[in-house]
């Protein structure tokens, strides 16, 4: 249960980061608060879009998928099932690979760093670790399921 809770919370944080970058990409929010980073360089590069769609939008979709899966996995009827953990691990792996590619572009092609993108990369990396641990630990123990019922 703890791993699914952690993933829900982390994916919410990742969702907010991606939402911020996406709203910036479509002109809803102003200049990125980037400190000493080079967010504008990264965000206005040709690599910031895939087929005209801002990359951040894929992040929004990915984190929503992780968040919803984690919440569903926390429902009493799914707590003892392994399928949410498998799905979370799959989604986290896809997200991690996509993020690794984007981070490679930042490092070696664009040669500029966007701290929000790095923040998202850190979040998905932690989610992946937690998801893999959740997979190893298997389904939630009956005692935890009962406590979830009593607390919920």
């Amino acid at each position: 249960m703890r791993t699914r809770q952690a993933i829900a919370l982390l994916s919410l944080v990742g969702f907010l980061i991606s939402l911020y970058l996406w709203l910036h990409a479509i002109g809803v929010v102003g200049e990125l608060k980037c400190g000493t980073g080079s967010c504008e360089v990264v965000q206005t590069s040709p690599y910031a879009r895939v087929a005209g769609v801002p990359v951040a939008f894929f992040g929004v979709l990915g984190y929503v998928a992780l968040f919803v899966t984690a919440l569903v996995g926390l429902q009493p009827s799914f707590l003892s099932k392994r399928s949410p953990s498998l799905l979370l691990a799959g989604l986290a792996t896809a997200g991690l690979l996509f993020t690794a590619y984007l981070t490679y572009l930042e490092a070696f092609v664009i040669q500029a760093w966007c701290r929000w993108c790095l923040g998202s990369a850190a979040v998905i990396a932690v989610i992946w670790v937690v998801a893999v641990l959740g997979l190893r630990n298997g389904a939630v123990a009956p005692s935890q399921r009962d406590s979830a019922r009593s607390l919920g």
Partner: peptide
């Protein structure tokens, strides 16, 4: 906790950065 994080994040994005 999820609700607080969500609302806090959305408020920060919207009011702190509006174009």
């Amino acid at each position: 906790l999820l609700a607080v994080v969500l609302v806090g994040g959305v408020v920060w994005i919207w009011f702190g950065n509006k174009a």
